[in-house]
Design a protein around this nucleic acid. Structure first.
Length: 218
DNA sequence: TCATTAACACGGG
DNA sequence: CCCGTGTTAATGA
């Protein structure tokens, strides 16, 4: 691998994961991993689809959703740079069908590691198995937070959490979205989102525009 | 009481 | 004109 185009993502991978994986494993990742640049809004994985690779995020963000019986999406959490998807690790335990939908939230750069290769690394690289376990734990905690939000938080609170999450994930105070999209993510109606956003605007926390919400603080 | 559904007017692109 | 937005009235949980 000496061409500039292939070494560039190798460098990204090394800088992103150098503190996490040892050098030998980093070399294996650049050898066996497939690099992908994915534009915003791409569905990387859907419910029932086979999970044949483990994603390692370099740049960007991925929205992880579950579907209700009507096929409506419920937001679970976001994957960010340096994250992986614990559910794809489930393939280690025999499951191979995805139970979630994953859509890129912004332009994203990631490495896909074939499941079989990842399984070998579980035995040979302690830094890999530690990473998988840590990823499992952090994904589990995020899911528990999502459950808490759905079960115990009122809508105004959930909306504020959602907005601050989006700002963090997008790295931009101005969110380019519609009230309807927010309503879909929070699993409620647009009427409610419009009213709550209007309240927040009156409180001076944000400014509303067409197709955009400009946050003042978060 | 609060969310949802339907309906409507307004306005910017 | 089309679509996103803001609002209201009726209905339901």
């Amino acid at each position: 691998m000496t061409s500039p185009s292939s070494t560039s993502w190798h460098q990204d991978a090394v800088t992103r994961f150098s503190g996490i994986f040892d050098d030998a494993l980093l070399a294996e990742i650049t050898e066996h991993g497939h690099h992908m640049k994915v534009p915003e809004g791409t569905m990387l994985m859907d419910v029932g689809q086979d999970m044949d690779a483990i994603p390692l995020l370099l740049e960007g963000a991925i929205k992880i959703m579950r579907l209700d019986k009507n096929g409506d999406e419920i937001l679970l959490y976001f994957l960010e740079s340096g994250d992986s998807c614990a559910l794809s690790m489930g393939t280690y335990m025999g499951a191979s069908k995805s139970s979630i939908r994953a859509v890129t939230e912004r332009d994203t750069s990631l490495i896909m590691v074939p499941v079989g290769v990842g399984q070998e690394w579980m035995k040979t690289y302690r830094s890999w198995s530690a990473f998988v376990l840590a990823s499992y734990q952090s994904r589990l905690e995020e899911m528990l937070e999502a459950i808490d939000a759905l079960a115990f938080m009122d809508l105004p609170t959930r909306l504020r959490r959602y907005l601050s999450d989006k700002v963090k994930v997008q790295g931009d105070l101005t969110l380019h979205t519609t009230h309807q999209e927010i309503a879909n993510d929070l699993h409620t109606s647009r009427v409610v989102v419009s009213r709550l956003l209007k309240n927040l605007e009156r409180e001076g926390l944000l400014t509303l525009h067409r197709n955009a919400v400009e946050m003042k603080q978060y």
